[in-house]
Computed example of a mutant assay.
Amino acid sequence: MESGFQTLEEVIGDESFPEVDLTLRRGRHIGRDDGSLYEFLVDAQSLLEIFYRRYGCELVQRSDGFFYLLPTGDRLGRRQLSAGEMLVGQTLALLYLDPTTLQLAGVVSREDVLQRLSGLLGAERLFFALNPRKQRYIEHTAGETIRSQLAEVLRRLTELGFIDLFEESRIRLRPALMRFADPVRGLQDSQSALEQLIDRGELVVDNYGSEDGENAKNDEGSDL
């Protein structure tokens, strides 16, 4: 499709550019659900790819229907997901791939997420995965702590454009979650393979963000 923009000056002068630029720099994914912002990126993609390379970033478009910035240098800083964010993101991707979720238009509840997490890890292991600094597991308060931490992680994943949060604890899963499933794409049973990744904690998703220029690390000190 031929672009409606002829020059980068025209792109930057468009009324959609400031919002799109700030959104991408904050690490958020922009998908088809974002309407005019997504359409603007499709139209201006070739020119914006050149623009962001000057800042050490690649503007990536995925066939699933979303854009994001991928840092290739350190000029604008790099942020990576925490262990808890990665774990919940993986589980949300698993739900996204579930045919039952498709029948529900991609909408699940927080209880659905919590039950899937607990089923995969068990309550005690989930507690420490979401609270790596805790030293003790106290059963009668663990459930409340898990729910509190899950709410904070879901808020962060919403900011990054992986999900949308609605009232009554409903969650709409967005196509950007497929980034968490990249290592298992093309496998015959991708859902089972993703479950195994969750069990071993072996999935990494880089995100560009402007909060800081440091890499988040897990308890073992390895880059996430």
Rank of each mutant, 00 (worst) to 15 (best):
G201Q: 06
V184I: 12
C57P: 04
L114M: 05
Q103A: 11
R174L: 10
Y55F: 15
D74N: 11
Q191T: 08
D199M: 10
L92D: 00
E144H: 14
G143L: 08
D206T: 15
R62A: 12
F5C: 05
L70A: 08
D14L: 03
F127K: 07
E168Y: 07
R53G: 02
G73D: 15
S192T: 13
Q61N: 09
V108A: 01
R78N: 02
G213C: 01
S82F: 01
G35C: 13
D14V: 09
S3K: 07
L104S: 13
S63F: 12
P99A: 11
D74R: 13
L70P: 01
S210I: 08
G27K: 11
D199I: 14
L160G: 00
S118C: 01
G119S: 13
E2W: 10
L47D: 04
Q90V: 01
F66C: 00
R179T: 15
V88L: 08
S82V: 00
V113N: 03
S63M: 15
A123H: 04
I198W: 07
R26V: 11
I171Q: 02
Q61H: 07
E15Y: 03
D223H: 15
D223C: 10
A93M: 14
Y208F: 03
L187N: 08
S3D: 02
R185C: 03
L120H: 06
Y137L: 15
E2K: 15
N207E: 05
R110T: 14
T72I: 14
D43A: 11
Y68E: 00
L203I: 12
D219T: 09
D64F: 07
G65Y: 04
G35Q: 05
L95Q: 04
R32Y: 03
V60L: 06
I12A: 05
F66M: 10
R200I: 14
G122F: 10
P183V: 05
E167N: 10
Y55N: 08
D98H: 13
L160I: 07
Q115S: 07
E167Q: 15
M1Q: 09
R25H: 10
P71C: 11
V42S: 11
S222P: 02
V205I: 08
I30K: 12
R28C: 05
N215F: 08
Q6V: 08
L102E: 12
T158D: 09
G35D: 10
A105V: 03
E195Q: 14
S190M: 11
A142H: 01
E202A: 05
S210K: 13
R26I: 02
R125M: 03
F162C: 08
E195S: 13
S190N: 12
V205H: 09
A151V: 12
M86W: 00
S169K: 14
Q149T: 09
R170A: 10
S109D: 02
Y68S: 09
F66H: 13
N207G: 01
V184R: 01
I50A: 04
L224D: 00
A105M: 06
Y55D: 06
L197G: 06
R25Y: 15
N218H: 09
I163P: 02
L47S: 13
L177F: 00
D189Q: 10
V153M: 00
E202M: 09
L70I: 03
S192E: 00
A129L: 07
S63H: 12
E85F: 02
L104E: 04
A83Y: 06
